[in-house]
Structures are given as structure tokens and as C-alpha cells.
């Protein structure tokens, strides 16, 4: 009895040591930066970048209210940044939708191949990731610009008479996001479809379900966690992305990521405002995740 108890004590203290590295990592790379960001968002801006260590709500105020050029007019709602936020959410949602549309069949296809060939297909999906995201986005810009290969090829075939004008549109941004994050959709769905027991779909077919009903009523509900994980993994980085909107969207199609990036770039920035925008973004994402987890927990209970 005491022997067991002693062993348990020893194990407990060992466990603390084993957990320490992950706590330190989380602390250094997550808690400290986010905490710093939170603090800066409540500070006063310095005009050449950096902060003056004086408490101020100016950053949040600037995000929400317009007080005129000199800050002395009665406050009205500042729509500029709210619109950027809404646009970001819509862009990210559309990118997520298309990733799901293409990613699910892709993942399903790979997961139902011969197990020897699966690694090859997965390898193909991850190959683009060997190239830096910036380079890939620039390449995409090069491909779709007005005098780029796609337009020139289609003009030379006589399919179109003038360039499609793809570049600097919302569509270009969505395409960029889609291209950047597609594997994040494919991989988790692949993982859950691969674990899917296909006896279930046999059982469904045996019980008179056609292919469509089997997919909708049996396969989708069972692999839903993988789909949810994929959507989260695509939606969140899309929301904060700045490369694709910067390079492909032009000035009209500004997204939160670009807005935040601007605030920390060179001397023109506004650190507290950038930090405040980041905190607002983070809060929104956390609320969305919380709602999702609560939904998950509820559906598991019933």
C-alpha cells in the first residue's frame, strides 16, 4: 500500500518535470507575446513606431470612433476598420468554403486509395509547402496578372479578347487564400476519413441507402470532427492573412492582416493601434472557437 503510494508520489513529481518543457515553450512563445500585445494595445503611440508607456484607450477608440482630423469633433462610428474586419471574415469564409469543396473530395480520394499509394498522394499535397509562402503568392500573382501566362494563353487561343482582369480583385485574394491553405483542409479530413470504418457505408447500402444518403447520413456525420478541424485550420489563418491580400488584392481589398502589418512596418506605424486590432481579432477568434467547442460538447452529450 505505502509502496504504491510512494510510487505515485514519485510519478507525480516526475510528471511536473516532464511537463515543464511544454509549459516553458507555451509561456515564452504564446503567453508572453500575447500579454505584451495586450499591454501595448493600452499604451500611447509614438509617432516613429514604438510606444510611450502611458495608459491610454486611444487605440481602441480609434478603431471604433471617428473624432475628426484633430480629435475634437463629437464621435461617430468609424466604419473603415469595421468594414475591413467584415470583409476579412467574408473572404476567409469564402476561402474556407472552396477549400472544403475541393479538399473533401481530395481527402476522400486519397484516403480510399491503396494504403501503399496514399503516402504518395499526401506527398503531392504537401509538395508546394516546400516553397516559401511569399514566393508562391508572388508566382500566383505572376500567373494571373493581365499580361501573365493565363491571360496570354487564353487570348492566343481566342477564348477571350482582352485580359480577364483577375488581379487586384476579391477573387484573386480568395484564390490566394485557397491556394495557401488547401492542405490544412485536406490533411485533417484525410486523417478522419482514413479512420472511417467502411463497414458503416456497407451497412448503410445494405439498409437501402443510396450513395448520396450514405454520404450525407453516415459518412459526413462520422467524419465531421475532421471537417471542423480543417475549417478551423483554414479559416483562422485566412482571417489574419496579409500576403495574399497585399500581393493579389491591391489597396481596395485590404484585410485585417494587412491592416495590422501596416501598423508595425517602418516608421509610419501605430503600435498600440496594431496591437488593439490584433486583440480584437484574437477575441473574435476565441469567441468563435468557444461557441464551436460548446456545440461539440453538447452534441456529444446527447
Amino acid at each position: 500500500m505505502t509502496q504504491v503510494y510512494k510510487q505515485k508520489r514519485a510519478f507525480d513529481s516526475l510528471r511536473i518535470w516532464l511537463l515543464l518543457p511544454s509549459w516553458v515553450t507555451i509561456g515564452i512563445f504564446l503567453l508572453i507575446p500575447v500579454g505584451l500585445m495586450l499591454v501595448i494595445s493600452f499604451m500611447t503611440k509614438e509617432f516613429r513606431g514604438g510606444v510611450i508607456w502611458e495608459l491610454s484607450l486611444a487605440a481602441y477608440d480609434q478603431f471604433l470612433f471617428d473624432r475628426g482630423l484633430f480629435g475634437d469633433e463629437p464621435p461617430t462610428i468609424q466604419w473603415t476598420y469595421i468594414v475591413i474586419f467584415l470583409r476579412s471574415i467574408v473572404q476567409a469564409a469564402i476561402a474556407t468554403f472552396f477549400c472544403l469543396l475541393i479538399g473533401f473530395p481530395t481527402a476522400f480520394f486519397i484516403a480510399t486509395r491503396d494504403s501503399r499509394n496514399r503516402t504518395f498522394w499526401i506527398f503531392l499535397v504537401t509538395v508546394p509547402y516546400w516553397v516559401n509562402l511569399l514566393i508562391r503568392t508572388v508566382s500566383l500573382k505572376f500567373l494571373i496578372r493581365d499580361n501573365g501566362p493565363i491571360n496570354e494563353f487564353m487570348i492566343s487561343l481566342g477564348l477571350i479578347s482582352e485580359p480577364l482582369g483577375l488581379i487586384n480583385t476579391n477573387l484573386a485574394v480568395q484564390l490566394g487564400l485557397f491556394y495557401s491553405y488547401l492542405p490544412f483542409m485536406v490533411l485533417p479530413i484525410y486523417a478522419s476519413v482514413e479512420r472511417f470504418n467502411f463497414t458503416f457505408s456497407e451497412a448503410a447500402a445494405d439498409l437501402y441507402a443510396d450513395k448520396w444518403s450514405t454520404l450525407r447520413r453516415i459518412v459526413l456525420p462520422i467524419v465531421a470532427p475532421g471537417i471542423a478541424a480543417g475549417c478551423i485550420l483554414v479559416f483562422i489563418p485566412s482571417l489574419g492573412a496579409f500576403l495574399a491580400p497585399d500581393l493579389l488584392g491591391g489597396a481596395k481589398n485590404f484585410m485585417i492582416g494587412s491592416l495590422i502589418e501596416e501598423q508595425f512596418k517602418g516608421n509610419a506605424g501605430n503600435w498600440p493601434f496594431g496591437a488593439a486590432a490584433s486583440m480584437i481579432l484574437l477575441t473574435m477568434v476565441l469567441i468563435a472557437l468557444m461557441l464551436y467547442t460548446r456545440q461539440q460538447a453538447k452534441s456529444e452529450l446527447t
Binding site: 470504418n197 463497414t199 458503416f200 456497407e202 451497412a203 448503410a204 445494405d206 439498409l207 453516415i218 462520422i222
Partner: peptide, 11 residues
């Protein structure tokens, strides 16, 4: 109709 070895009841 089939009764499967591992039942295959929809989870």
C-alpha cells in the same frame, strides 16, 4: 440484409 461481424451500428 446483413448482420455484420462487428455489428457496424452507426455510432
Amino acid at each position: 440484409n446483413t448482420v455484420f461481424q462487428q455489428y457496424a451500428l452507426f455510432p
